[in-house]
Design a protein around this nucleic acid. Structure first.
Lengths: 206, 206
DNA sequence: GTCTATAACTCGATAGAC
DNA sequence: GTCTATCGAGTTATAGAC
């Protein structure tokens, strides 16, 4: 192991336990209700240290959201394959990500977007740039229809999130992922590939 | 007109303008972020008056949610009729309620449920007692399957709410209601009447 | 019935000692 | 690098004058 000279970086344990605490707090409470004081308490450090490491609460949120999920590769993977099963694969991907430990990050992003303006904007842009464009390319969607299809898919996916993870409407929270894939996948599939009502694919909204 | 003796009741104008302001504030911000001060300011009254009329913030929320919507009659109306079109009628009902002035109330309830534990519970119980049971009766659903069907329908409806009214993901906010009915109705229909994956209708969630 | 004043808390952020 | 102490701005809710 090479001993580097110069100043040692900040204690990595402290920094990463703050990040862990932040992720779970944001996931559980959303951006607004997650307090820096509570995050610091859970991490076992002083609240001032949080500011020392991350500056403002905004930056802490961004830092805690950045690490673990890379939709840039996950989404194309899920969409690749037989066109008729893309819907099921998408639902399966969503559930596997959200049920994994890394899913607390995504849950934090989502919960925050539901109650906070700037995080909502963040999510909107994320959906558009990271998901929509990938889907257009991968599935060769008609560019005129793509936004409407993406938004419709988003209604079903977001609704699944809300009902299963936020409202906890039984039997969704305790259902096996594959059962949900079988139940919901075909609806997503329909939004992806079935013909759309003409009025929806029009550029304007009347 | 009969002149009653004794003390005059509180100024009804003041009371109802507080209620109006509360409804729109709760709809716009959700329970937590809607402040009594802001509600009082919008109603043009003193914050202390809000407490005088309604007691706590909880009670003000309940009072502002109670008046305008009676799902006990709306839901059965929407479900009655040809079974194959129940999904479309349900989506149409939801959109017509939420786009109407009275819809701000429902929007408040919904936004609040997304970020606050006790209002989420309120909504859950509302869905179960006011919507689910009516649907079971009206559509003659198998009681074993009914909770799963209701929850699945809820994913699509809640997702529509979230994407159209909260995240405002274009082109949903500016789309004509009938276009959304045509696009989404069939998916709701599928949840209502198509066969379910066996695992979902089981009582447990193992 | 209405409003002023304030109690009793939360929060994010900062300054400065060590 | 860490912590104490504190500022300033929020919040709900209440007590009491008029």
């Amino acid at each position: 192991m090479v001993r580097r000279s110069g100043r040692r970086p900040g204690n990595q344990d402290t920094r990463s336990s703050i990040l862990d605490a932040a992720r779970s707090a944001f996931a559980e409470k959303g951006y607004d209700k997650a307090s820096i004081r509570a995050i610091a308490a859970e991490a076992g450090v002083d609240p001032a240290l949080v500011h020392h490491y991350f500056g403002t609460k905004d930056k802490l949120f961004l830092a805690s959201m950045n690490a673990p999920i890379d939709p840039g590769t996950l989404i194309p993977q899920a969409l690749r394959g037989p066109r008729e099963e893309a819907g099921e694969r998408l639902v399966r991907l969503v559930l596997s990500v959200w049920d994994s430990p890394a899913g607390t990050t995504a849950l934090g992003m989502f919960r925050s977007a539901l109650s906070n303006e700037w995080t909502a904007r963040l999510l909107r842009e994320f959906v558009i740039t990271q998901v929509l464009r990938k889907a257009v390319a991968e599935l060769a969607l008609d560019p005129v229809e793509a936004p409407a299809r993406a938004a419709l898919v988003a209604t079903q996916i977001a609704g699944l999130m809300v009902a299963r993870y936020v409202l906890k409407l039984e039997p969704l929270p305790s259902a096996a992922p594959e059962a949900l894939v079988a139940a919901i996948g075909p609806n997503v599939q329909r939004f992806l590939t079935e013909p759309l009502p003409a009025k929806l694919s029009a550029a304007d909204g009347g």
